Amino acid sequence: MAEAASGRRKRLRDPEGARKALVKAGIELFETRGYASTSVQSIVDAAGLTKGAFYHHFQSKDELLQRVHDEFIDHQLSKARAVMSEPGLPPADRLRKLIKEALLEPMGVYKAEITVFLQERRFLDGDTFEEIQRKRDEFERIFVDLIEHGMNEGAFRRIGPARVIAFGIIGTGAWTHAWLDLAGSLSPSEIGEMFAEMLIGGLVPRD
């Protein structure tokens, strides 16, 4: 009994550890049971915590799903911004790095988070979804602006609206969550190289 109480006290003194445990439990349950069928009680049970701990970190299950989204989109945005800040890269090389480093390589770390969000985002609305959409809009705009710039510079063929092409590229990368085997023979980085070669090959001017 004393040992169990000691364990509880340690958790209470580790709010960041508790938050991570709740997010981890939420990801696992949302992925296996679905968002609608997962209760706050089941999340805290899986995390070994209490509802009080849950509501200390999250106002609702919606906010937890938002945090799941932020786990990967913040990483992707950081990678995308870093690529865009590199000096002297031609548009094709910059787009190649975006596809590899901001789209595909994060799948190796955040596949579960990406899968959960894409499967369960229909349950989000209001202020929670607006904040999520703001970050997603920034990520998409990076691709749109780069493709538009490449078209204006003659580095890419103007085969259609830059926004539609950007959505096609991002969608191609995001959909890998449905089939990617992290223990498979190809790494997310290698798949990113393949996708970049395929996608950019359709944009660069033909001789």
Rank of each mutant, 00 (worst) to 15 (best):
G26W: 12
L124D: 03
V23N: 12
S42H: 09
H69G: 15
D45I: 03
F72L: 02
F129N: 05
H56L: 14
A21R: 14
T128N: 06
R157M: 07
Q66K: 12
G150W: 04
G126D: 14
G126Q: 11
F143A: 15
I147D: 13
R33V: 01
G154R: 00
G126M: 14
G48H: 06
K61M: 00
T50R: 04
F54Y: 09
A46G: 12
Y55H: 13
R67C: 06
K24L: 02
D74C: 13
L146Y: 00
L22G: 00
F123G: 09
I43V: 15
E28M: 08
L22I: 02
V40F: 00
I114T: 04
V23G: 05
I142V: 07
E148A: 09
E140S: 09
G154A: 00
F58W: 05
A36R: 14
H75A: 03
T50F: 03
A80L: 09
D137I: 11
F58G: 12
L118D: 09
I27P: 00
V109E: 10
N152Y: 03
V40H: 01
E131R: 14
E120S: 02
D127G: 12
T38I: 04
V144K: 02
Q59S: 10
P106L: 04
I43W: 04
G88A: 09
V44W: 07
R81K: 04
L103T: 05
I99D: 07
R94T: 01
E138V: 11
L95Y: 02
E113H: 15
E31Q: 14
L95V: 04
R122T: 05
R33K: 12
K97N: 02
R141G: 07
D62W: 13
